[in-house]
Design a binder for these strands. Structure first.
Lengths: 213, 213
DNA sequence: GTCTATACACTGATAGAC
DNA sequence: GTCTATCAGTGTATAGAC
């Protein structure tokens, strides 16, 4: 309601519309896939004429590319908790919490990423080969240090990371299946807490970072 | 090379062509998604004219539906090992092995299923509500009996099942990402064995079904 | 920067000869 | 049962007035 008098600058208009379009695009790409999504659907959801989308993003693929890159950036941020932690209980525990929270709050982004990877990453293959590869190596080194320090069992670090990704993202990517098996209702707050607790308990016990109850 | 003389019966021709088409369709749907797949691509991969596809399957959606139903049937079969087992070590261990083997041998099917669920199951929603719901309830009952018998910890059975699905299917659905992180090469036999061993170790220890090494 | 009208390509599906 | 030719519908992208 503020700034009712001053007209928006061109930069502000651009940023506002781009955000509108990107948010709508993320949802439509998640629901329908790249091929099933149409610029018309995205335009309708964003509340703009279709031609305006092509004004801000030259092609459908350019728009899609921006959506995927934004998602990737969010995920990298969520991983900061990993390094700062003194051991696996804190580090992996916080990482599970962070990724489960992303699955809950931004399921569309997770689905777009999953779809992109399933289709052999036509748009973000370079990210997989550079940024993600380096990130993975770094986190594997952290896990190896925890193992050497006797803070957890000698688990294969790579497959542990895959299990963390798989389990947490499953709650977003297969959210519809989970909801159906929950009687058609979204998980309640308590059910989300139970999910997080189950994942953390099984994995942290499974790698020998905590003892039996 | 046998039967070079006798002409194929119409039934044999139909069955052979349907198998060809279904196999091609599974791969194309997995690679491109439902919206991105075209009847032309499927026809080319099957080595048949496009019009023949419509002779055997009236619409693209009917063909897709058959592909998804076949995948679902395969998965139900793989779950038989669960019930026959005397305890979680054998039951869950064999289930992990079976699902990892499916991810390795039929990754396309897994991807089609994942894509279908991610898009809110437009085709197999009824299966989720009936067959899958019943199957899940049955397996949860088995897990509860194991818990009551003291064969494993009091883990939430539902979230344990989700973790089993997530972890095993990840190796198919995200196979491209895993391959990229493996230097662009598919996992070797030894690496697949390491993957299976890691998953089984973490989960079976995590639920208290086996002790520390 | 916005939006209507439209060009152009492609896809699913069918008709009809063989 | 097979296959070429084709239609109707839809999608991306753009031109051009405002």
């Amino acid at each position: 309601m503020a700034q009712s008098a001053r007209p928006l600058s061109k930069k502000e208009i651009r940023e506002g519309n781009e955000r509108l379009i990107l948010e709508a695009a993320e949802n439509v790409f998640a629901e329908a896939g790249f091929g099933g999504a149409t610029m018309q659907l995205i335009a309708d959801l964003a509340g703009l004429p279709k031609a305006n989308l092509h004004y801000y993003f030259p092609t459908k693929e350019a728009l899609y590319r921006q959506v995927v890159q934004n998602i990737f950036q969010d995920w990298l941020k969520a991983a900061d908790v990993f390094d700062a932690a003194p051991g696996p209980v804190e580090g992996i525990g916080a990482y599970i919490d962070a990724k489960m929270e992303i699955s809950r709050r931004h399921p569309a982004g997770s689905k777009v990423w999953a779809s992109e990877v399933m289709h052999r990453a036509p748009v973000i293959q370079d990210y997989l080969e550079t940024t993600l590869t380096e990130w993975t190596e770094g986190r594997m080194a952290v896990i190896r240090r925890w193992i050497e320090a006797g803070q957890m069992d000698a688990i294969n670090p790579r497959h542990l990371l895959y299990m963390l990704w798989a389990t947490t993202q499953h709650y977003a990517d297969f959210g519809h299946q989970i909801e159906t098996l929950n009687g058609g209702k979204p998980l309640s707050d308590a059910q989300w807490e139970a999910a997080k607790a189950s994942v953390k308990t099984i994995i942290l016990r499974g790698i020998g970072a905590i003892g039996n109850a």
